[in-house]
Design a protein around this nucleic acid. Structure first.
Lengths: 188, 188
DNA sequence: ATTATCTATAGATCTATAGATAATGC
DNA sequence: ATTATCTATAGATCTATAGATAATGC
């Protein structure tokens, strides 16, 4: 039953990765501790050896998810003459829309984060800050503050479009949301 | 215990109004049937005389909420020389941010709607369609399709900014999200 | 007689903990 | 000896239903 300290750490990592993915797919209240631990190949009792509470788990899963999203974002822009446009195209693609568990964690959990306690909300805030920083590096013109505000506007617009594209059950309308915001952002 | 048919209908309306408000505030899984009925002054057993299931209730609460939001939107634009700009300013105000229960239902429940069954998702889709129609009437230039795409882009951008402004626990950043998208939308 | 609502409860599910188990690490 | 994980379970909560109750509507 007991495993090596090294294996225990690997297990904890596996739980966190599963949590970061499954919370995005099902939301915070939609994923129970037992289900999550089972996905990582453990029983639910083991959760409380690794984490203080479900809230602690949500906080750490947010941090993990934002790290992944930030990496995904900077990766999308790299090796492109206009990294911001490259990222916008990737963010607003049907592929991203259909891969909620591996996509932008902000788009997957904004409203749910608002309904959780201050610790989750704070982890979420810090994550958003990181994403805005990442995006701001891709903005070409303007003062530092202008670039940051520009990044915030681009991020909010993309996120809104992605979420609406996911929420509607009409494929045409869904693609139109992606297209509409994409052409709006790529023009300016 | 029994009330008049007329009173029963009033009760049902009161339940629906409470549901439309409380689901926006707490999310679908966050509001239980017992709590909701108590808010309307009834016991939870009465719910199943008025609605088939919690899902049925969610569907009807969505319809009610979207009606209210559509009215709120067209009201915001009326009696203004540029109704679209008037609406954008109202939508992206701190007052709207702080009044989630009475504000845009799409911004309050997008992600949660995605996690519910097809009936809720369809009610949500129809509601979004109504809001886009309302917004499209305020767009001045372009063909019908261009005006509609423009309305979709404006809606997605506003919604994303409002949700991020609600999610972060830093007042400066929150206001910056509103400001950033507002100036972006009002310029063009 | 009909029926809107209430009371009581079934059955499922969820977070969290206590104590047992068995392999690690000294 | 320590401890990561498991088993079992407590206690709370949630949706839904059955049957009782009492006022309406004929």
């Amino acid at each position: 039953m007991k495993v090596s300290r090294e294996q225990a750490e690997l297990n904890r990592e596996r739980v966190l990765d599963a949590a970061a993915r499954l919370f995005r797919e099902r939301g915070f209240p939609g994923l129970g501790v037992a289900d999550l631990m089972k996905s990582a190949g453990l029983t639910h009792g083991a959760c409380y050896g690794q984490f203080e509470s479900k809230e602690d788990l949500m906080v750490q899963a947010c941090q993990r998810g934002f790290e992944q999203t930030a990496e995904w974002m900077s990766g999308a822009g790299d090796r492109s003459p206009d990294p911001l446009k490259a990222l916008i195209s990737k963010y607003l693609s049907p592929a991203h829309r259909d891969a909620q568990g591996g996509g932008c964690i902000a788009a997957a959990l904004v409203t749910e984060a608002t309904r959780e306690g201050p610790d989750v909300q704070h982890a979420f805030t810090e994550g958003v800050e990181t994403l805005v920083d990442t995006l701001a590096e891709f903005v070409q013109n303007g003062s530092k503050r202008e670039r940051r505000l520009q990044a915030m506007a681009v991020f909010a617009s993309m996120m809104g479009a992605l979420m609406l594209a996911r929420a509607v059950d009409d494929e045409t309308m869904s693609k139109d949301f992606l297209r509409a915001v994409k052409s709006e952002l790529l023009e300016s």
